[in-house]
Structures are given as C-alpha cells and as structure tokens.
Computed example of a mutant assay.
Amino acid sequence: MGLVYAEIELINGEDLALKRKHIIGEDEVKRMTVSALVDTGSYMLCINENIQEQLQLPVVEKRKAQLANGEIVQCDVVAPVELRFKNRATTCRAMVLPGDSEVLLGAIPLEDMDVLIHPLRQELIVNPDHPYFAQMKLK
C-alpha cells in the first residue's frame, strides 16, 4: 500500500470556545486546511512550527519524540486543536515537529473520528459501518 493523504481542517479550539461565548466573531476563528499524511505509526496529530504559529495554539507541555530517521527531539505539545474530516470532528492535542515538517494524522484522532484507510483506493474514508456517526454541530 502506498502513502495515504487526507485533506483536513485544523481549528484553534480556544477560538471556537470564544466564538461560542460570542466574544469573537466567526471571521476571527483561526483555521486552515492542510494535506496530512495518514500515519498509523504515529499516535498523535503532528503539525509543524509554521502551522502552530499561524493558528497560535497554546503550548501545554513538552515531550520527547522519535522522528522517522531515529533522531530524538523535544517538541512542544499544543491544545486544543479541533480537527475536521468530512462529517467527522475531534478535539485533540498536537505535537509540534521542527521546521516545515509534514503534517501527520496519527492513530488517536483517526480512531476518535471512526475513519478507516481504504487500501485499494489508497484514501481515508468514513467508516462505512457508521456513515452517519453522531457528531456535534460543526458550526
């Protein structure tokens, strides 16, 4: 099976909370759409420093991570990040990888959204057994 990428939307979770309280408007919510490598070998959502800077996500802790080349680096962990894919959404933490690293969509957010990798089509899909999985209102 080749590499699988998915278009996902990343949203600053603190901004969404402020919007729900009518403190900021919809146009002030920081969000972006990115292409993420679906990586079941990673357990978290991993973003890069550029995305973290644009979304202004708060750092909640630091963790050590092993990169694909074996290098161990200390990374910031940011939260909350709302992640959306098709009719699915989850709120999670994200590890901030150095520089302009590729976005990785790890196992925890994949499982929480109940999505699957379709090996023949090489794409991320909504679980066909639960196509209308109950979701919160996405606005």
Rank of each mutant, 00 (worst) to 15 (best):
Q66G: 05
M1K: 10
A65E: 10
R93S: 10
D39Y: 00
R31Y: 08
P131Q: 04
Y43L: 11
A68F: 13
Y132W: 05
L138W: 07
S42K: 00
E49K: 13
E123P: 07
E82V: 15
V103L: 07
L45W: 11
V77R: 02
I47E: 11
Q135T: 13
V81H: 01
A89P: 02
V29Y: 03
G70W: 02
L105W: 00
P98S: 10
L110N: 01
Y43P: 00
V34S: 07
P80D: 00
Y5C: 01
V73C: 05
M44F: 15
Y132C: 02
A68Y: 03
F85N: 02
A94T: 05
M32T: 15
Q74I: 13
T90E: 02
V103M: 06
E53A: 14
A17V: 13
T40L: 12
L104F: 05
R63Y: 02
P80Q: 00
I108V: 12
K64F: 12
N48R: 13
V34D: 04
C92N: 12
R88F: 09
L45K: 12
I125W: 04
D27Q: 14
N48G: 12
L67K: 10
R88E: 07
K21I: 01
I72N: 10
H130T: 11
V77I: 14
E111K: 15
Q54T: 08
R20M: 09
A17M: 11
R88I: 07
E71K: 14
M32F: 04
R88Y: 04
Q122G: 07
E111D: 09
E53C: 04
E71G: 08
G2E: 10
E71D: 15
K30P: 01
E82K: 15
V34R: 01
G13I: 06
V126R: 02
E14G: 14
I23V: 13
R93F: 03
V60W: 06
A6T: 08
C46E: 08
S101K: 05
E14M: 09
D112G: 01
I72C: 04
I24Q: 10
D112T: 07
V81W: 00
E123G: 08
